[in-house]
């Protein structure tokens, strides 16, 4: 029991060490600038510029968060402060089901519905043409994938706001909405940020759904209607050939390491904040 528990902690460090170990060859061969600030990705010429992939990942994630956060905040406030029990009993299981839907299903849905939406309506509305496989498409699909985690964490955070605090605000004449706006949201601010960061890191590491709808063109996307090529898609698309070209596998492991470290830091910070909120209440 003890051994297994230590093993589960060690797993975190094992993954880190394993990925670093595998990334060392490329870090030795190629300069930092050529890896992170170069747009040239030509494995056969030993050029592994990761910049287009990093930018694409950031872009898709930001679009997803921008769409998702306002909707999740409004939904979570509604469920925790306004909705009656029957509504909550109806909505919660459905959000759980949404959380369980596999990435590939989101991807397929993206191809069936979101790609045509972007191609036939959104792109023409902005006066351009597009294949529909864009950063925006990826962002829309991702925004729905991260609904459950953000809403779930937000609901937990709102639950920790003491009832007395709300009552005090109401008793001095504030309306319910003023209480939400000036007391609850202010008090819950660190928790809200944690929820957003957790959703953001989920979007960051999502692979198949994004890969299927984002176009996979190696370029630095400028407009949300440009295609992109996120880091996760890079890793997934090239696993087949990576063993035949020198340093290729090391470059992909470095890409995984980047994902791992960023998600690790994000998760660590937001979990710590949430833990502190919990402790304060208890």
């Amino acid at each position: 029991m003890k051994g297994l528990t230590y093993f589960s902690i060690a797993l975190l460090f094992l993954i880190l060490i394993g990925l670093i170990y595998k990334s060392v060859p490329i870090l030795k061969e190629t300069s930092f600038g050529n890896l992170f600030f170069s747009t040239e990705w030509q494995p056969l010429k030993m050029k592994f510029g990761l910049l287009p992939f990093i930018i694409s990942t950031l872009y898709v994630t930001i679009v997803a968060v921008v769409i998702s956060v306002p909707l999740c905040l409004l939904t979570a406030i509604y469920l925790s402060e306004y909705a009656d029990k029957r509504v909550i009993a109806f909505v919660n299981p459905l959000i759980d089901i949404l959380a369980g839907i596999p990435s590939v299903i989101f991807g397929i849905w993206g191809i069936i519905e979101v790609v045509p939406l972007v191609r036939d309506y959104i792109a023409p509305a902005f006066g351009t043409t597009s294949s529909g496989y864009t950063i925006l498409t990826g962002g829309i699909v991702l925004s729905i994938m991260i609904f459950p985690i953000i809403i779930h964490v937000l609901l937990e955070v709102f639950e920790t706001i003491p009832e007395d605090l709300k009552n005090a605000s109401l008793s001095v004449g504030a309306t319910k909405w003023q209480t939400v706006k000036l007391v609850i949201l202010r008090k819950a601010a660190p928790g809200v940020i944690s929820a957003i960061v957790l959703g953001l890191s989920r979007a960051f590491g999502e692979t198949l759904a994004v890969l299927m709808v984002v176009g996979n063109v190696i370029m630095i996307p400028i407009s949300p209607l440009d295609p992109g090529y996120p880091i996760t898609a890079l890793i997934a698309n090239n696993y087949g050939e990576m063993m035949s070209i020198p340093l290729y596998d090391s470059a992909l492991m470095l890409a995984s390491l980047i994902l791992f470290v960023i998600v690790l830091v994000f998760n660590f910070i937001s979990r710590r904040i949430l833990k502190n909120i919990e402790r304060k209440i208890a």
């Binding site: 990925l19 590491g205 996760t232 890793i235 696993y239 492991m253 690790l264 660590f268 979990r271």
Partner: peptide, 21 residues
């Protein structure tokens, strides 16, 4: 805390790590 963080690690990273193993 470690387990919660592990929960958040993208599955493609597990894939890459599994491949390394």
């Amino acid at each position: 805390l470690c387990l919660d963080v592990l929960w958040g690690i993208p599955s493609i990273v597990y894939g890459a790590f599994g491949f390394a193993i």
